[in-house]
Design a protein around this nucleic acid. Structure first.
Lengths: 210, 210, 210, 210
DNA sequence: AATGAATGAGAATTCATTCAT
DNA sequence: AATGAATGAATTCTCATTCAT
């Protein structure tokens, strides 16, 4: 429904199996939402039973939609990655090209502190197979942000996408597990942003370190 | 104290519970080593059975030495933290005060890429209970490194211990889960180090970014 | 869906948790019956596995219905106490008010010789928690019998409920563990009944001692 | 090997295997005492380890003296039965022949309230095999008390040993598990004693019922 | 004889997954 | 399609018993 373009489904599997019945689709959504909530709170070792209860469906229904727990976890990942990609794309069209990357990183770290999911899943599940293409999309979005920042002169030219993602991942993990408070998070990010800026741009707004 | 092998007991706690019999101590070491290896590979949810098998002892022996799985995990943590603290202290007496902190961070991140343990444990177990003081010791060691770096002028004065540890944690987590290769790791750290340096010291040896 | 039979559920708790599905109810009954049998024979330390096997279900099913072993034991207790209370109430409306108490005691002791359960459970479990009110109901039933016997003049006026229950408990325990035969049981009870009667009623039918 | 007297050891096994070394005998006693204490407090399911700790010896030593846990339990039983027999015999030579049986029963019930052992063991272990002869000795002692009471006219002539023991067992079990207080115990016993007395002796001192 | 470390068969409990209703 | 009961392998932990020191 929400797919803006029918798209000859070769690109990235738009859930692509079959047009589900209305109630089935509704259940699918509820299960996904419940799973995200439950796993966010209790970590990926929470039981599928609990997810079912939280979604208000029977356990069988969960397994009907997601034949294994792995599949459910991956679905959450995809979902999340898609949302992040969307957010990246939105930021890319913003009017502050020099700050978009910094903003994105900041937002992700903020969310990580609340959601075990993204990070926790990456940890447990690895980035195996199925989600690879979703990840790729996100990478491309981030790359666009990086390029624009470099063109705007707020990020050094010699920095590659890989490092940015490495930093992003690490910072999210750290924020997640160590439970950084707002202030610590801000100061930590400021250091990293400082490291990303070229000499002449040091002390820029996003990197203000007090 | 660069002695390579001053005592075979550098590994675990000299918190004198009781002088174990020779064979008991040997088994204790083997179990700890096995546990570290197994948990490093499979994460902390690996079964105690597997640890026992890897150590070549019966399951009962593992539980005799470490009465709960938690206890085993904590023992590994303590062990590891003790080793890190030792390393910090060694670095602190080195002749390159300006680089000691950078060196330490680099080494930790290198190890994290191999050992799921440190980081994985911190994630699952939290820093509860018994390990709290071990953690404190490590913090103090790192603080000393930080102070010396600041006195040597290689780290900005306005940076606090908390940010350094936050960065350290995040970087370790990232290196661990994402499996950074050598080169990526070096470049990522370089960015962070660059962010830590004062203006006038930028482009220093440890932060060389190619 | 209107149940054609009055109610096949006289056995367990009508404390409306939820109307179980037909097969679930059937299994619940089978498990309860199996548990009663197994614990009766081997005492409450018999394994839950054995109960499952005896009931012809998988171990998981037992734990689905009774989430801990304690819960299973308590369910048996409640069940049994309910049955006894019912029996007490029935006897109370009998036409031989003077003998009802004696009859009840005799029956309980007879059953005890077959069922380790009642008594064994009271021993191991204590009368903790949930069963307390079931016990209370039984006490009240027995008190009614006692009062009626006293009014009928077959039990001394100065005897209290506590002693009756103490005797009942002791006799059941004795019958249970020592495996009294029919005759020994009769003679032993006769002595106790004799002790309960007032002077003028000695040698009554129930107390005939040969 | 060096057994000084082969001794026709048929009567009742006076611990009869071999003359133990002095320290060994001492350990044996300590273990027995510890076992009695531990099992009295925690019931017969207490671990052998705990017994060893309480006795201040190593676990191996316990198994050296008592090759199985069963054997240890039986040894306690024998010990206890021997002590009871001794007590019976002492009472039998007392100057109050009419009350000796009542006194003995009263004492046993009192002790039962404190010691899980006697009764608990009888329950778990059954009276299998090994202790049979010890039991027989006690039976004979009690029979003597019964006979003397009957000759003194305080117990009915038509009462047999079996009923007395049945009552004794039941009362002990009851006292043990139900935790009777002093007063309840007295009133309960009074009822039973009343049932044992002949018509003409009712209301005797031991049976005073208030 | 004593020690106490090691053994390994259970025991209770959980949970992903299947399948009859 | 949905339900939810049943399954049974896996996991943590205990404890009687054995055996090298």
């Amino acid at each position: 429904m929400t797919s803006p373009k029918p798209s000859p489904e070769a690109t990235s599997d738009p859930t692509g199996t079959k047009p589900l019945r209305a109630d089935a689709r509704r259940n699918r959504e509820r299960i996904l939402a419940a799973a995200e909530a439950v796993f966010a709170e209790k970590g990926p070792s929470a039981s599928t039973d609990e997810v079912a209860a939280h979604a208000g469906v029977a356990i069988g229904t969960v397994f009907k939609h997601f034949p294994t727990k792995q599949a459910l976890l991956q679905a959450i990942m995809k979902d999340l990655l898609a949302r992040l990609t969307q957010e990246v794309d939105t930021l890319a069209t913003d009017d502050a090209p020099g700050e978009a990357l910094f903003t994105f990183i900041t937002r992700m770290v903020e969310q990580a502190a609340q959601k075990r999911t993204v990070v926790g899943l990456l940890a447990e599940t690895g980035i195996d197979l199925q989600v690879a293409d979703s990840v790729q999309l996100l990478r491309e979005g981030i790359e666009a942000l990086l390029t624009r920042s470099q063109q705007a002169g707020t990020v050094r030219e010699d920095i590659h996408l890989d490092e940015v993602i490495a930093l992003l991942t690490g910072l999210c993990q750290g924020a997640l597990h160590a439970g950084w408070d707002r202030d610590l998070q801000r100061r930590t990010l400021a250091i990293v942003f400082e490291g990303l800026r070229p000499f002449e741009a040091r002390g820029g707004a996003a990197g203000t370190y007090s």
